[in-house]
Design a protein around this nucleic acid. Structure first.
Lengths: 333, 333
DNA sequence: GTGAAAGCGCTAACAA
DNA sequence: TTGTTAGCGCTTTCAC
């Protein structure tokens, strides 16, 4: 018993006007007679008329929709700790602007190209928010060059792309500095996937801090991991087996930090007395742990919101589309 | 330099056929000559043609899109621990079926009605997945009665609605039983918002277990809270002030459990020796805490996936739309 | 086997 | 001030 949908034509017919007039009336166009307008509006309200956006989209050649595209692989998945915050920031702005929010995930990274293309060509969305891709990903360039409105949530590796990024180098510098100022000398750094720029940036910040504080950088203290909680745990266990000596850990994200702390506890080491640990992201759960997790705050929600605002500007033509438009968020801790 | 879009007409013109034939060729219709077909397909591929889905939607009167609607309020927000898992389950099924995923949030619960209506009438989506609403919410009924394909992620309070729910009573029963079997007698229950059915169900399971184990239910041991980590912390502190005696806590979710554990630790109580704590949701972080959090597993991802599959069945007409279609997920721990 | 034409719901240019 | 017409891109009869 699916009710047929009430359309503009229905309204027009009942009101005894043409659909053009009805359309104008609903758009509150000054040309249409005030009485007719009221009449039309009254009928529309009574029948709970809402314009079919598909029809409107086809006509206007825009979808009033923004898509977030990202691969749903373990390390960039939904379960990524701050992913939900990002969604929240994006969603807020979109809803406030009466835009729709399309979520597009791909099972693997290689399918990403297809997903981009699809969004691009099916015209289901007017713009795309891109999740940071591996630096090796060449698809990004294609999208950017297509002229389609895009905002990239990371460091732009193309002059013309709109970006919103965080100061990962600076954040990592602060984290490391914090440990150095507490007198730590042998600071382990647990990295994420090395093919992400974020990872390289955090490593860079770590190195810079060491250098500024005249502590020799020791490659053996950098453990390549993958942003997963379990890896933090394993890293500590591996170091135990390899008899690595260290008095602090700077983890590439909070997940690894939490895993590391757990491992340290299981080994009977005291945190932070024996080993101090600093994370990155400042997820809420860190504050409730014992010991509390020291972490670098990531303004993820604001990143999402700002990225969306900038994208909408481009879509609405409020802003010149192709300009170096990078914006770096400061990171506090 | 926004490139104009390549349309079916373009393909047809270049191929030297009518757009009707081009359309049939692309749909692999047997009527069209194999040679023409190949020719058309070749050109389409070369020009990277993808049908405009808006046009197609308008014609077909369907959007190939499913919307998830929920209020973005603190306790049902994105940051809800298992929210991301739900998204993942939904997303997986939708992408596999070439459906689009629309995320629709509302700033307040009262705006939800508007959001539903909008989705319903703008025809942007063919079906809706409904986040569990407060039992007091009357909007749900309107949607259900509208005949629009809907699946509700909770206990149906309408005979005709398709639901996917979890066995919250049973889960809470198990959690409480676990504590009782460990010899605990004075078990505190931290509840979530009382106007959600989940909350009432968990309370019910708690009561049933007590009864079955011949432990007197004591209303003063039920503390009304709101599923937020901080509240778990506060609850313990309040009980301390009020000199409530207890030897176990069954928290309505993991967040409150984690908060409670932290408070207990701050008060110098040992977990689980002095006070045993059981949570609900089994979020990943619980396993990395020290002490590890005992929790009731929620198959949230599967709930999302199943809900989506059932909804697609309804949309595709694979399944009779209006039938008692409840499905209860078993909960393990 | 192919093309012409109609129409999904909407809006905008143009006429009246 | 209102109506007529056309067309966004697509698919689907119905002729040929």
């Amino acid at each position: 018993m699916k009710r047929e949908h009430v359309t503009l034509k229905d309204i027009a017919k009942i009101a005894g006007v043409s659909s053009a007039t009805a359309s104008l009336a609903l758009a509150d166009d000054p040309r249409v007679n005030i009485k007719t307008k009221r009449h039309v509006l009254e009928i529309a309200a009574r029948l709970h008329y809402t314009p079919n956006e598909i029809g409107r989209s086809l006509r206007a050649k825009k979808a009033d929709t923004v898509a977030l595209v990202f691969p749903n692989t373990p390390h960039t998945a939904f379960t990524h700790p701050f992913f939900s915050e990002l969604l929240e920031g994006i969603s807020e702005v979109l809803m406030a602007n009466n835009f729709n929010f399309l979520l597009s995930t791909t099972p693997t990274e290689t399918d990403e190209a297809a997903a981009y293309d699809k969004i691009l060509r099916t015209r289901r969305a007017d713009g795309i928010i891109l999740w940071p891709a591996p630096v090796t990903d060449r698809n990004i360039l294609r999208i950017i060059e297509s002229g389609f409105p895009v905002v990239y949530l990371g460091k732009g590796y193309h002059q013309d792309v709109l970006t919103v990024e965080r100061d990962d180098v600076g954040g990592a510098y602060k984290a490391t500095e914090h440990l150095l100022m507490n007198g730590r000398k042998r600071i382990v750094h647990l990295t994420g996937h090395k093919d992400f720029l974020v990872t390289l940036d955090r490593l860079e910040g770590y190195k810079q801090a060491l250098q500024d504080y005249k502590v020799l950088f020791e490659p053996s203290l950098v453990i390549d991991k993958d942003y997963v909680m379990e890896s933090g745990y394993q890293a500590v266990m591996e170091m135990q087996r390899n008899q690595v000596e260290y008095d602090a850990i700077f983890a590439g994200n909070d997940g690894m930090a939490i895993g590391a702390i757990r491992a340290l506890q299981d080994l009977g080491k005291r945190v932070p007395e024996d080993v101090a640990v600093v994370g990155f992201d400042n997820i809420l759960l860190g504050t409730m742990m014992k010991p509390s997790l020291t972490s670098i705050e990531q303004p993820v929600r604001q990143v999402g919101a700002l990225a969306t605002e900038k994208l909408l500007d481009v879509i609405n033509g409020t802003q010149s589309e192709r300009k170096a438009n990078g914006h770096t968020f400061p990171i506090s801790y």
